[in-house]
Nucleic acid binder design. Structure first.
Lengths: 113, 113
DNA sequence: ATCGTATATTCTCTTGAGGGAATATTCAAG
DNA sequence: CTTGAATATTCCCTCAAGAGAATATACGAT
């Protein structure tokens, strides 16, 4: 889980994943599509591979990388309990709470505590 | 999106989120439950807040943190196109591909490319 | 055996994230 | 206005992640 999040936390890596969703690609293709340097592409792919998110196949001297569904499926499962959670809350009492700063005054007693 | 992943990539932060799923908590409670030091808890909460993942409410000199559903809902949406993806692939041709190393030989032509 | 293409690896450098300790701030109570 | 509890902030330190450049490796072609 941690590994999956970490892998996706990196911008370029997320781009790669998003690209691979449309089908397998060779390193060079990824490089071209995302305007990255070849070594960085390889490095990122290595990380993604370490997270089990991509699989490699050989084609002569090229390596074709493909997205592996499993880790994202795991992510999906992880999300499951939260889905119930927000189905409960998303309706009411959402906009009430202030995200960044703390609520000015407004002692609203209908809240919950 | 990036921000969400980054926020959840940190182990302690993931623990906090998982804890808050069971209901809002004051900083001290989180601290006690997860065996962390108070400053780190505050810091992590700040990051989570920056990602819009928690909301704060005041209770005297305590701050009650609650999980905000929205970012996780966003994550859920992000996952959507992938769901189609793995529904297509998860059945066959999954175990074929080698994750960590590259395929030894086996020129299987039923694959796809 | 050589060469050229595609990709991986190594090295170095820089930057930011996270931990720890100390300190500041906020607030209620008296 | 002082005090104590709860929380936030600051400062310092360390470490690892990511970029860039250079180089190594793998493999097909000739």
């Amino acid at each position: 889980m941690q590994t999956i999040f970490a892998a996706l936390a990196e911008p370029q890596r997320l781009r790669i994943v998003d690209l691979l969703r449309r089908g397998p690609r060779a390193v060079g293709e990824i490089q071209g599509a995302l305007r990255l340097r070849q070594p960085q592409v390889s490095k990122h792919l290595k990380v993604l591979q370490g997270a089990g998110m991509v699989a490699v196949r050989r084609d002569a001297q090229r390596r074709i990388y493909a997205l592996r569904p499993q880790p994202l499926a795991v992510l999906d499962e992880w999300l499951e309990p939260y889905r119930r959670y927000w189905n409960t809350r998303l309706d009411a009492l959402e906009a009430h709470l202030d995200t960044t700063a703390d609520q000015p005054r407004t002692r609203r007693s209908t809240k919950r505590a």
